Every structure is written in structure tokens, then in C-alpha cells.
Amino acid sequence: MQRQYHAWHSPALNRTMELLIFGHSGAPVLVFPTSHGRFYEYEDRGMVGVLSHHVDQGWIQLICVDSVYSESWYNYAADTDARMWREEQYEHYLITEVLPLVRHLNPNPFLIATGCSFGASEAVIFTLRHPGLVRRVIGLSGLYDLKRFFTHYTQGVYFHNPVDFVPNLSDQWTIDRLRETDIILAIGREDPAAWSNELLSSQLWGKGIGNALRIWDGWCHDWPYWQRMIVQYIGGHD
């Protein structure tokens, strides 16, 4: 399996950012780490291994990015607006730095985004905020109401909180692009965040945006379950 390490000083974030790319061709898969994970987590936790056949066959190419969660979502000592601005800068880094690199290495236009736990939250937020950019998103055990991270509710929080902004979507171009996106939300029935998956799925359907809500028996909030989930859903809704 082809494995590439990349690092550079990001103009958007004014810090060095690292990432790993696995594979030589196929649909690029943007992988977000968990809340305290790093760009090498997907490999360390066996997720790259369970997808090795897909990668070796040239069906997918994994782009495992780093995060700035500790400077944004989890930076409780900072002002709410500063935290959300850091998240905006992170999205800018992905769009203006990571994706151009991916497209330079791989012309396949079918971009997939995925993540586990908080990585799922980030993948879904990124997809919904940038309609038409991601063609399939696979959220595994994500939370989609993130207000509890903040003591002050601001416009920035609203626009990064799916269960708040999705019901108010009105721009037809945005809705049409999201209708063209494969949205897959998988979570355990006993996961404390399951309700937010059910709510977001219902809200999306309310806008005519189809999605696949997959509720697994039990808690399922751990790597062995996510390994099974990603293999099952990487190709579609099954």
C-alpha cells in the first residue's frame, strides 16, 4: 500500500500541519480524527488495515488529516467567537490547502468525508456547510448538537451546529447540492448521541434531503464497531 507523509506551514492556520495519504487512486476519503486523535490515529487504530483491500484495489484513497480541536471546540478557556473563528480557519485550510494537494495527486472528483465520534461531527459539519464539495459523508457515532461545548450561544455556534441550521436551510442551490450527497449516519442505539442522529436525519428529510440513518444494536462507540461500520458503508448505504 502506498503511504505518503506530508507536512507544511499552513498559511490559513499559521502553524505546521501534518497528514497521511494511503493509496494511489480511487475516490479520495477525507478522514477526520476523534476529539483527542491525531492524523496517524486511523492507521494506529486499525481502520486503514480493514480498508486495505479497498485501497489496494484503487477504489479509495485515504487522506488522514490532523485537527485543531484543542484550539477551537475544546479550547474552553477562549472566547466563543475566537474558538469558532479558529474552526473557520481550519475549514479554510482544508479547502485551500489540503484539497488542492489531493486533486493534484488524484483527479477523481468523488470526495468522501468520514470520521468516528467527534471526527464524525466534523465530517458532517464540513459537508453540510460546503454543499457540493463532498459527495458522500459517513458519520460514525457522531454528535450533531454541539451547543453544550459553549457557555455563550453566538452566530458562529449556530452556523456550526447542524441541528440548529439545517431546519432553516432555504437556499435552493444549497438544498439541491445536499440532495445529491450521500449522507450516512451510523450509531449505536445506546450511544448517548443517538438522539442527535435521529433528529438530524429527520430534519434533513424535512428538507427533502435523503439520508441513511443506521442504528446499530448496543453502544457501538469503539474502534472494533467503527471498523465494521466503515467497511459496510464506504461503498454506499447498505
Rank of each mutant, 00 (worst) to 15 (best):
T34W: 04
K147A: 06
Q57P: 03
H104M: 09
T96V: 05
H160L: 06
Y225I: 00
S170I: 02
D56G: 08
F150M: 04
A113E: 08
R3C: 03
I184C: 11
P33C: 07
Q155L: 14
V48M: 07
I21V: 15
H53G: 05
A12K: 15
E198M: 10
C64Y: 05
W216A: 01
F159H: 14
S67C: 03
A12H: 12
Y74H: 08
G23E: 14
H24A: 15
G218S: 11
D191R: 06
T16R: 13
A194P: 01
P167I: 05
D182W: 05
R15A: 13
S67V: 02
E41I: 01
T80A: 15
R3M: 07
R136V: 00
G49N: 12
H6C: 06
S35E: 07
L13Q: 10
A7F: 04
D222I: 02
S117G: 01
R135E: 04
D66Q: 12
Y69L: 02
Y93E: 10
S201M: 03
Y40F: 07
R136G: 00
L62T: 11
H6F: 10
G235D: 12
F149I: 02
W195I: 01
C64E: 11
T114I: 05
Q172F: 04
I183W: 10
G37Q: 04
G218C: 06
G218Y: 13
I63D: 07
I187F: 01
K207C: 01
K147E: 14
Q57V: 00
L62Y: 09
P109T: 03
R129A: 04
P192H: 05
V134W: 06
D171F: 06
G156M: 14
F39S: 03
T174I: 12
S141D: 09
P33A: 01
V29H: 12
L200W: 08
I215R: 12
L111S: 05
I187H: 05
F110Y: 12
L146I: 15
G206I: 09
N75T: 01
V137G: 01
I60L: 13
G210K: 10
V98T: 04
D176W: 07
N161D: 14
G188L: 11
M229N: 01
E97A: 09
W205Y: 06
V48H: 08
Y158K: 13
S52G: 09
G235I: 00
E91W: 14
Y76P: 00
